[in-house]
């Protein structure tokens, strides 16, 4: 249960981008319920998952995070009606960029945690921490040389994630 069980083991650093209304409140509930969990996650509070720019995730890794959690309201339960749907769609596109960057998918955890799911937040935190701990420290983006530019006529890859095409 505790982060520092073994001093020699690697303790990852995880950044969590969560929405204010569901997951942040759910994490509050986990606290109020005194649910013990790994101490590796640092929460950055945002109003809504819809506010989360995929570049936040890229930046977190660039600045030394070993893992990232993104969590918000369940579908159909968004405080702002539809922000989480936009986020979901955005991250579906973002997954392609993740592969391009060579990030193992296990380092990024997407989940829905509602304001009443303190228990689930603990599971998300502990599972993500265990997964990233097993993957070891993140040491920069490997294989960053660009793939061959597609032949003329083929659609060019869109390097700007989350840039448009929302609907």
């Amino acid at each position: 249960m505790n982060a520092t069980l073994d001093k020699t083991s690697f303790e990852p650093r995880l950044t969590a981008f969560v929405c204010n209304w569901c997951t942040y409140t759910g994490a509050d509930l986990a606290g109020t319920s005194r649910l013990q969990m790994d101490a590796n996650v640092r929460i950055v509070r945002l109003p809504c998952t819809g506010r989360i720019d995929p570049l936040f995730i890229v930046k977190a890794f660039e600045r030394g995070a070993d893992g990232v959690i993104v969590s918000g309201c369940h579908p159909a339960d968004c405080h702002y009606t539809s922000g989480n749907y936009h986020a979901r769609r955005r991250f579906a596109f973002f997954k392609e960029l993740i592969e391009f960057l060579g990030l193992p998918e296990g380092r990024i955890t997407f989940s829905w945690v509602s304001a009443s799911e303190g228990q689930k937040w603990r599971e998300v935190v502990n599972d993500a921490t265990a997964r990233v701990r097993a993957l070891g420290p993140f040491s920069g983006y490997p294989g960053t040389e660009l793939p061959a530019w597609p032949a003329a006529g083929a659609p060019a890859p869109n390097p700007a994630p989350g840039g448009g095409g929302e609907r």
Partner: peptide
């Protein structure tokens, strides 16, 4: 104030 516009 959801901020979806900014991320978009």
């Amino acid at each position: 104030g959801c901020g979806t516009c900014q991320a978009t």
